[in-house]
Nucleic acid binder design. Sequence first.
DNA 1: TCTAATTGTCTATTGATCTAGACAAGCATA
DNA 2: TATGCTTGTCTAGATCAATAGACAATTAGA
Lengths: 248, 248
Amino acid sequence: MGKMAARRAIERQTGVALWRQIADRIRLAISNGDYDATGMVPPETALAAEFGVNRHTVRSALAALAEEGLVRAVQGRGTMIERKERVSYPISRRTRFSQGLARQVKEIGTKLLGHRQVPASGEVAAALGLAPGSPLVELRTVSSGDGRPLSASLSYFPSERFPKMAEHYARLGSVTKAFAAQGLDDYVRAWTEIVARHADAEELALLKLSPGAIVMEAQSVNADLDGRPVEYSRTRFAADRMKLRIET
Amino acid sequence: MGKMAARRAIERQTGVALWRQIADRIRLAISNGDYDATGMVPPETALAAEFGVNRHTVRSALAALAEEGLVRAVQGRGTMIERKERVSYPISRRTRFSQGLARQVKEIGTKLLGHRQVPASGEVAAALGLAPGSPLVELRTVSSGDGRPLSASLSYFPSERFPKMAEHYARLGSVTKAFAAQGLDDYVRAWTEIVARHADAEELALLKLSPGAIVMEAQSVNADLDGRPVEYSRTRFAADRMKLRIET
DNA sequence: TCTAATTGTCTATTGATCTAGACAAGCATA
DNA sequence: TATGCTTGTCTAGATCAATAGACAATTAGA
């Protein structure tokens, strides 16, 4: 007897279509390694029985997962798992974006979507310990691992101290290196706040998510070794591709 | 001119009903403080125009939020906001459940749902540095702030070292105090991993969430000052009531 | 008291989702 | 090659979600 047993029943009339609930469950089961023994999703008829729905409903769920590139169905054989693991993103006093990911993905891509000068809003000013309206450099970036988008960020830096942030980042592709180019050799994470919610339309597009997906939004402040804030950022992680690991 | 401007359009045919997407947006806007000026949600007709849907669809969304107790509609007046803020849960080297929450909620409730002896599964054994199958005490608890469920936990303790964990916890209502009663005066958080996903049926019931809601699941290990793990736990937070704050 | 703004209720219609059943087509293995 | 298992496709009907419009009921303010 395997671990099977009836999975918990899914909910009807909740505003979330059954096929989407089932897709979410299967996605979770895949990343939990429930199907590692065979490398395949159970047959559609078995899934239909397990969830107590019609086979067509399961097919809609699998079609959505195939669309994401998570599984691939082959007539006559079954539905194979193409990708499974979540990337672990470490958060610690010395959080550096690329470093922690380097061991888990072959190729890390960072893309600068845009940059501009903005006056600090109340919230950002407070986080950076500046007067509201102080000039900031804003960077909008998207990062990916092996071609899959993992996170989208909005970062703010004090313009007076780091006037060339955008240029350096565009050239070097790294905040750490851009800081170094402007005379800041070391910095530490002061705090991070994490919230989870449904992705909005912009995030769906940037992270190539399917509608209804979840993002984890981390707001964080980095400071130099004297404790002066040097960066405030809002990073949104694709929740089904990432986990956050906090080392304390 | 206020901040209004057309909000980003919502997505159709995604497997998530429009009324649920709108409910999620309004819930987010409330916790962001967008409606603090009036303490009221905009009129149904205004919301319908903003989201580009029929008024009845907005009404479904508001009905769901009223069901959660987040808003209350009064005929002729409008729809008032009853509750808004997210509770911030601090995670640091010295993470203690009650301490961080005490300032934000008047009354903290912890409830022991059940306890039992279980052999350690592979994953839990690895986290605690024990041999698979080692005896553990499992505690199932739910915690709430001012009457609203905030988190549900599964905690595991090595039976050999803490044989009376369940009894002490039941009496004292606190893991920290139960440790102290068994001779462990201090412990620290070794690591925490955070994932966000849709709540399953059990979590919906335990945390009194509406279907389709999001939970943040934190897996963590606490260790004594010699670095020996003393607790492994899986805590699921109601994502729309909590944010996690990491101090590094 | 009258009016405007707001929520509450009803009916009707359209489109999306889910169920049900049947059969075709491709793959693996005896 | 023959058989069984699996995915692919089609049709038809039932239920849920969303639109549309009309009007009632309540509140606040002129």
